[in-house]
């Protein structure tokens, strides 16, 4: 288990993490969600022993990240946000290099990385700098896996990657998880929250919520309706100004609208609005909150 207890970290005036506590279980695929600057990389760097927490402590499988960092470094695989490949070395050379500095070889752990590596193997003589984004990502993942780590930490591996390739990447992570490796991934894409076993949301250095995707969705405290009308903008404005409204936000072609009171009669309220004739007919239906709805609500608190 990875136990993060009350971790605080500042860079000068800037508080990157404040009082973050979190447990990640062995063998879990855990997603750390947060916008840029939320503190995701800082938390990861503390996990992989690159940074020291100002306050609090972190135990990885019973090992302390401050005291036992040499041991931790042998059981961790880490893929920084920058991919950390040598652009002038070939695919093969990059991989062989990472294998050797971890005191292992490509042959020894090939079964583990085969799934990922097979996709880039046809280009093994190509310099890593000349690979496409998706291939770099796969090579970096292979490099981080080559020593069969017990815990794999991936810092925003899917940033800038298209939706289909992201989906494939998550499938690869699931396969790695099957090998008994704990996988921790950060992302800024809200839709990836439901790809793991559990997720947590980091906002301005604070941990807002951790749980399974269902738990996160269920944490949305209000009923949620998807409304649409001829003039969504006008409707949005009027909904927002209504004191009974908890939240009203555009969501694609609809407005996600939540009244603050549970027993509020949405039907009456909207048909009254419809009667003013300003918005044309207003369609509405009850909908289940998305993970993003929950996180949006939490980050406004």
């Amino acid at each position: 288990m990875i136990r993060i207890v009350d971790v605080t970290k500042s860079f000068g005036e800037n508080k990157a993490l404040s009082g973050v506590s979190l447990d990640i279980f062995d063998g879990e695929l855990f997603v750390l969600i947060g916008p840029d600057g939320a503190g995701k990389s800082t938390l990861f760097r503390i996990l992989v022993t690159l940074l020291l927490p100002d306050k609090g402590h972190v135990l990885i499988k019973g090992l302390d990240v401050v005291k036992d960092f040499w041991k931790i470094r042998t059981i961790m695989g880490y893929m920084p946000g920058t991919f950390s490949l040598y652009p002038d070395l070939t695919v093969e050379e990059n991989l062989a290099f990472y294998a050797r500095i971890f005191g292992t070889s490509l042959q020894k752990n090939y079964p583990l990385i085969r799934d990922v590596y097979e996709q880039i193997e046809p280009f093994k003589k190509r310099a890593a700098g000349k690979l496409s984004g998706g291939m770099k990502q796969k090579l970096a993942l292979s490099c981080a896996l080559i020593h069969r780590p017990e815990v794999l930490v991936l810092d925003e591996p899917t940033t800038g990657v298209d939706a289909a390739s992201r989906k494939e990447f998550w499938q690869m992570l699931k396969n790695i998880q099957q090998e008994g490796i704990t996988v921790i991934v950060s992302t800024a894409y809200m839709d990836e929250a439901s790809r793991g076993d559990r997720a947590c949301f980091l906002h301005k250095g604070k941990l807002l919520k951790a749980g399974t995707p269902e738990e996160i969705r269920e944490s949305y405290p209000y009923p949620l309706y998807a409304c649409r009308s001829k003039d969504n903008f006008a409707l949005l404005k009027v909904l927002r100004n209504e004191p009974s409204t908890a939240s009203a936000m555009l969501y694609g072609k609809t407005i996600h609208y939540s009244p603050a009171r549970k027993n509020f009669s949405v039907g009456t309220f909207l048909s009254d609005l419809e009667k003013t004739g300003k918005y044309g007919s207003i369609e509405y239906r009850k909908t289940t909150p998305s993970v993003e709805d929950s996180f949006a609500f939490l980050s406004k608190q």
């Binding site: 916008p35 840029d36 949006a296």
Partner: peptide
């Protein structure tokens, strides 16, 4: 890319 959900909306 990389902004929080409220800001994005």
């Amino acid at each position: 890319s990389g902004v929080d959900p409220v800001t994005r909306r």
